[in-house]
Write a protein that binds this DNA or RNA. Sequence first.
DNA 1: AAATAAATTTAGACAAACCTAAAAAATAAT
DNA 2: ATTATTTTTTAGGTTTGTCTAAATTTATTT
Lengths: 218, 218
Amino acid sequence: MTHTPTEENYIKEIYHLQLVHGEVTTNSLATAMKTRPASVTDMLKKLRSKRVVHYQRYKGFSLTASGTRTALSIVRKHRLWEYFLVNKLGFDWHKVHEVAEELEHVKCEELVTRLDEYLGKPAFDPHGDPIPNHKGQLKKIRQEPISSFLPKQTGMVQSVKNQSPEILYLLLHFGIGIGSKLKVIRKFDFDGSIEIKIDKQPPFILSYQVAQNIFCTK
Amino acid sequence: MTHTPTEENYIKEIYHLQLVHGEVTTNSLATAMKTRPASVTDMLKKLRSKRVVHYQRYKGFSLTASGTRTALSIVRKHRLWEYFLVNKLGFDWHKVHEVAEELEHVKCEELVTRLDEYLGKPAFDPHGDPIPNHKGQLKKIRQEPISSFLPKQTGMVQSVKNQSPEILYLLLHFGIGIGSKLKVIRKFDFDGSIEIKIDKQPPFILSYQVAQNIFCTK
DNA sequence: AAATAAATTTAGACAAACCTAAAAAATAAT
DNA sequence: ATTATTTTTTAGGTTTGTCTAAATTTATTT
Ligand SMILES: [Mn+2]
Ligand SMILES: [Mn+2]
Ligand SMILES: [Mn+2]
Ligand SMILES: [Mn+2]
């Protein structure tokens, strides 16, 4: 079964919303897709006819097994391209999502296979998100937000939850990236902000909003 | 001015037809685009309103200066991606056109610049066609079809005119690629076929149809 | 159990890119 | 100079993905 770029974007978004919130609704999908609920309903009928979603009017919807496989293959392409853009072309990590949003729709199995090989079959994208392998399998890593770490504890950055260009750009300027080792110096109860130290850099303060989004392993 | 992928494909095709035949007509463009003359007329009105073509009904059309610049930038992207697919990902040269046909529409100036840098600012694509530089300038090479060479003359392959996957695949199997040194052994007047020798390979015969399409420098 | 509010779907339209069939203009042939 | 042929354009429709406004169903309050 072949899908239009628009269908693929819907499929990917349904997958993400299911993963993050456990469920999707017409409204939440409309918000995520920056479109109207009526348009979502139209698309759901189309995706149902293509066996991508289970859907009964007024009763909700979810990806079928085959729809999930499709979603994973799109996510795979998206993240492989992001990896390419950052690690081969030297893009900053906050500029690649938008471009990968287009590249992910290029239709060519051989391209995905060769790109994967060329990149060395990476398991994580530049934002620390797992890249599904050719079978759709994901590597999982136990990780906690740095905001939950205690003073004197050290964590290694594994991923960033909120991936807006704004927060990624901020982290770039703090010198924080995937793999950075962060030591918690102290926490300020008043606003939840945290003082952080990176080796060979002066300590600095992260707001709670930012710290919540930096996921680390101990 | 921003264009849809469809508009871009029309612009590129108008450019090619103008280059190869000196002119374009509604019918020739319809054939090239695998669509109907009526659809071409619709698109011409749209492209005129976007100042891409000069167009008067029943009087013909041609690219404006700005339309030509746009065409060159699409050709540039197409050929850079082809170069990438062959020289970085290891694709065979007869499989890349179709994929580049999609990649060329990805909208990101920085991507083109970085890709160009990454590839070493190549001047020719895998089929020997010139890649416009960032200013839209093309390198030209004096070249003749190997069918016009005389016995005992040697030529170096610079480009292939007909670029259907079929002829490219055939050449691949003969071991002929850009840069190959071909020595003409003899020519058969009956059908125009030519006996060719490549160093360290047994001689072989090329049909006139094929020989006509292999362009070489002396 | 009604009434109200929220979520979802339907109805009807629109723009892009395509189509077929018919009309109009340009070109070629007599 | 007509007539015939070819080329191009218009007229009117279709499909995809979008929209707004109205109707319907479900969920929440009272
Ligand atoms: Mn996308
Ligand atoms: Mn990512
Ligand atoms: Mn194209
Ligand atoms: Mn080429």
